[in-house]
């Protein structure tokens, strides 16, 4: 650990997200930021983490990060590849997944996620791609981690559409859905966790060098801070090296495919 290490906010976010995954965890991985974090975990502190992607690949160990959820790399490095109906029925709905790892375009203070529309559903201002696997990943996984960059556009007071459900104020997620729902939001500024009473996500850890005002300015609701806010441990030299290698390999491989 060295205070002299230089790293970006994105790198801090990915490292913090990767550390949230304990070794041996069975994790259903979303594409993009969650995929980078999950594979960083596998290549550093959690060699036995089990990564599952919705294309049906189980215990996959990609050498490079996939661009899409169904890249050949995922199947070639998997223990086994099952059909998509089997993936959603037996493995996700059947309760085999401990952590669902999602990205998000937009979320609210309860970690409800919108990836469907901006504006009215029938006459949308912007039609977004939709939910894909997320609605059931959010409810059937034991718990859910969400990782995205902190911005006012992403952290909003009210969503136009709830694509996948977060915590319910005063509700019991486990009874309702089978899983606990979202338990961590990891951004490039901080880590947020739900208040045990209100279920609202509050800041529990800030990354080094981040000011409270930055988080307030980049959150679309009146964000609250825990009574005791810790400082997120910085990335180690090893973590940064492995992450940068992964991104470099990925870039080289994808450039060669065109």
């Amino acid at each position: 650990m060295s205070e002299l290490l230089e790293y970006s906010g994105d790198e801090m976010m990915t490292v913090a997200a990767s550390r949230a995954l304990a070794d041996g965890t069975v994790c259903f991985v979303g594409i993009g930021l969650p995929s980078a974090a999950a594979n960083l975990a596998r290549l550093t502190h959690a060699p036995n983490v089990v990564l599952i992607y919705e294309s049906g690949t189980i215990e996959t160990k990609p050498d490079i990060l996939p661009l899409s959820i169904g890249d050949g790399e995922l199947s070639e490095t998997a223990l086994t590849t099952v059909s998509v109906p089997e993936m959603f029925r037996y493995w996700l709905q059947g309760g085999r997944v401990q952590v669902g790892f999602l990205g998000a375009a937009q979320l609210d203070k309860y970690a409800n996620i919108n990836t469907t529309v901006i504006g009215d559903y029938d006459a949308p201002k912007v039609r977004l791609p939709g939910g894909g696997g997320a609605p059931e990943i959010a409810t059937h996984s034991g718990e859910v981690f969400i990782t995205l960059r902190h911005s006012k556009r992403g952290f909003v007071e009210k969503l136009d559409f709830i694509t996948s459900a977060g915590g319910q104020p005063g509700g019991d997620n486990k009874k309702r859905c089978g899983g606990k729902g979202p338990t961590k939001i990891i951004t490039d500024l901080c880590i947020m966790e739900p208040d045990s009473q209100t279920k609202e996500f509050i800041v529990t850890s800030m990354h080094r060098g981040v000011e409270r005002q930055q988080i307030i300015d980049n959150t679309g609701w009146g964000v609250r801070f825990a009574e005791e806010v810790t400082t997120t441990p910085e990335p180690s030299a090893h973590e940064l090296e492995v992450l940068r290698d992964l991104h470099r390999r990925t870039k080289e491989a994808h450039a060669g495919e065109a």
């Binding site: 919705e54 998509v84 109906p85 993936m87 959603f88 029925r89 996700l92 709905q93 409800n112 469907t116 559903y121 939910g131 894909g132 696997g133 997320a134 609605p135 059931e136 409810t139 059937h140 559409f161 709830i162 694509t163 996948s164 459900a165 319910q168 309702r176 859905c177 089978g178």
Partner: peptide
């Protein structure tokens, strides 16, 4: 959602009129 579509295909292949799933809890779908 993906889970619903995948189940609906499987139900179609199985000659069933509908698929029964645990899905969409607390969403706007």
């Amino acid at each position: 959602s993906h889970a619903a579509m995948a189940n609906a295909y499987e139900a179609g292949a199985a000659g069933l009129p509908c698929a029964v799933i645990k899905a969409y809890a607390n969403t706007d779908y």
